[in-house]
């Protein structure tokens, strides 16, 4: 199959990769670009482990083709820390014990970031709705919700 060249801007850096048309953005980010913070769980849109931001909006990167991301601005978990300092959400997840195995954490934090960028002071219900598409098999969600509310100043 003929590969297509795709230009992506990931965490502010420009990348050019040649991909098959059926390559998902998820596989492209992990295997072609080598940023493995984004996780693959179900590969079907159900678990949210693959959540990244495209033009600021949260999407399941397993349900988006790399060719569809041509020219788009993508944020992955690697893009959150600035100058060696963790993002406030990352700090809060550590502080509140919202990370256990960590597999859901990158997607969870990006869903939370998308929420807070749009709605800086969400209610608990709004937080829970925002992370409804991110499954966590370890924490029971309570600490995750607390961590997000703490960053929002509504906890």
């Amino acid at each position: 199959m003929v590969k297509q060249v795709v230009q992506l801007r990931i965490n502010g850096e420009d990348y050019e990769v040649a991909v098959e048309p059926y390559r998902t953005l998820l596989d492209c980010i992990r295997d072609d670009i080598g940023l493995t913070g984004t996780k693959k769980g179900c590969d079907l849109g159900d678990c949210g482990a693959c959540t990244v931001l495209v033009e600021g909006k949260s999407v399941n990167s397993c349900l988006m083709l790399a060719v569809e991301a041509q020219g788009k601005d993508v944020t992955t978990i690697e893009g959150l820390a600035q100058n060696g300092n963790l993002h406030p959400l990352q700090e809060a997840f550590i502080q509140y014990g919202a990370v256990q195995c960590g597999y859901c954490t990158p997607g969870m934090i990006l869903s939370a970031k998308a929420l807070l960028d749009e709605n800086p002071h969400p209610t608990e219900l709004e937080v829970r709705q925002a992370i409804a598409g991110n499954l966590c098999r370890c924490t029971g969600y309570v600490k995750i919700v607390e961590a997000i509310m703490a960053v929002a100043g509504t906890g």
Binding site: G45, T51, K57, S58, N60, L63, A130, A132, G133
Partner: peptide, 12 residues
Amino acid sequence: AATIGSVQVRNR
């Protein structure tokens, strides 16, 4: 619309 999938699914 709000009952469909997740924010991620609704964004796409």
